[in-house]
Simulated assay, not measured.
Amino acid sequence: KPLYEKDDVRLIYQLPVMEVGYGETLSLDHEIKVTFKNAGHILGSAIIQITFEEDGEQKCIVFSGDLGNDNELVMPAPDTLEEADALFIESTYGDRNHKGAKESDAELEAVIKETINNEGNVLIPSFAIERTQEILCILKQMYNRGDLPVCQIYLDSPMAIRATEIYKNYHEELTECCNKFLERDGTIFGFPYLNYTLHVQESMKINEEESRCIIIAGAGMCNGGRILQHFKHRLWNEKNALVFVGYQVEGTLGRQIVDGEKKIKVYNEDIIVKAKVHTINGFSAHADQNDLIRWMQSFKRLGQIFLVHGERDKQEIFQKAIKERMNKPSHIVRYAETIEL
């Protein structure tokens, strides 16, 4: 049975909602206090710090939630904390380190230049939240430096367009780089080559463009969304490039292409994959092993460590790294396990 179902989600919306800002402390009663810190993962993500009194002694439990990385492109680095008697930390990428941000940016830039200058088009399946905004920032930086060839860029995802507007509304939570763009241009992500295609008719008109386009569309794993119509119209052309900037789960269309499938089915049509396929692994809204360990090392006092939110084999590698680099034991939490602190 799932941990929760649709009815459980509906019930949540019947509960009273209280807005709490980062750094604000909420008192649940006279003994238990909760403080939310910026996790730097996506807009609104939070580390939860719970303090309470037990037997006359002050205790602190921290839940990391999903932590962001330190590249400071769109989201700032996660807030650091000083102490925790118990830390429950995510372990999504506890087994590995991402490719460097500069290296990933350079790889994307090289693909774009080669493809556009060859009169081709670049297709980028992208997640609507965080990944899309990072790609837009990178493209804007290329434009500002004069490194972006003349082209038309289409953000062809209604969800990503609306999410991007929300990012602007909460610009104070973003990096200094994003806020400088906003102050200078009146927009964080916008620049002359960028077009937002919210409506279906606008999306369909992109098909009339023969070359020199960069198309960013969902779904990020190609299991639906507008990216499929662009596959149908452009994936068979060897002048074009398909760039994956996010993880492709096994069983998805994106994973099939990454694994080398040369013929795919889109809208019941067989499409030959002739476009050049690139996978750039450095783009991730998650902290990698180095980020996670650096974040833990910033605690002045750190008690027990519990590993959650990750696959068991990755957690075992992370557990070993924590022991080697921090000389501290950690515990991998099992499903439905009760922890006594």
Rank of each mutant, 00 (worst) to 15 (best):
T279Y: 01
K276P: 11
D313H: 09
R312D: 09
F231V: 12
W295N: 09
R226K: 11
A287L: 09
G310W: 08
K205E: 13
D259S: 09
I215G: 10
I293D: 08
I206R: 10
Y247W: 08
V308W: 03
V258K: 14
V266T: 02
R255A: 01
C222M: 12
Y267L: 01
D288V: 15
F244D: 12
G224H: 13
G218Q: 06
E311D: 08
V243P: 15
I257E: 04
K262F: 11
R226Q: 13
V258C: 14
K263E: 14
A241V: 09
G218I: 01
V273L: 11
Y247N: 11
G310E: 12
W236F: 13
V245Y: 00
G303S: 06
M221L: 09
G251T: 08
N281W: 04
L307E: 07
M221R: 10
W236L: 15
F283H: 00
G254E: 09
T252L: 03
E311Y: 07
T252N: 08
V266E: 01
V245M: 15
E210I: 07
G246C: 13
R312N: 12
F299S: 05
K274P: 00
V243H: 11
V266N: 02
K232M: 04
V245L: 13
N290L: 03
K239P: 04
G260C: 10
I216V: 11
V277E: 07
D270V: 11
G251N: 15
H230I: 14
L253G: 00
G246L: 10
D288H: 10
N223R: 04
A287T: 06
N268L: 14
Q248L: 03
G260F: 07
D259P: 07
S211I: 00
I227A: 15
N207D: 05
H230C: 08
A285F: 01
K265R: 03
L253M: 04
D313P: 12
A217C: 12
F231K: 11
V266M: 02
D291T: 07
Q289Y: 05
G246D: 10
W295R: 06
D291H: 04
Q304T: 08
L253S: 01
V258Y: 14
A241K: 09
S298I: 08
K274L: 06
G224V: 10
G246T: 11
N237W: 02
Q229G: 00
R226N: 08
E238Q: 11
C222V: 15
R234I: 02
G246F: 06
L228V: 02
N281H: 06
G254Q: 08
E250Q: 15
N240M: 05
I305Y: 05
N240S: 00
G218T: 09
I257L: 04
G251Q: 15
T252W: 04
R212L: 06
E250W: 14
L302I: 02
A285S: 07
M204Q: 12
I216L: 15
V245I: 15
T252V: 03
E261D: 13
F299A: 01
D259K: 07
V245K: 10
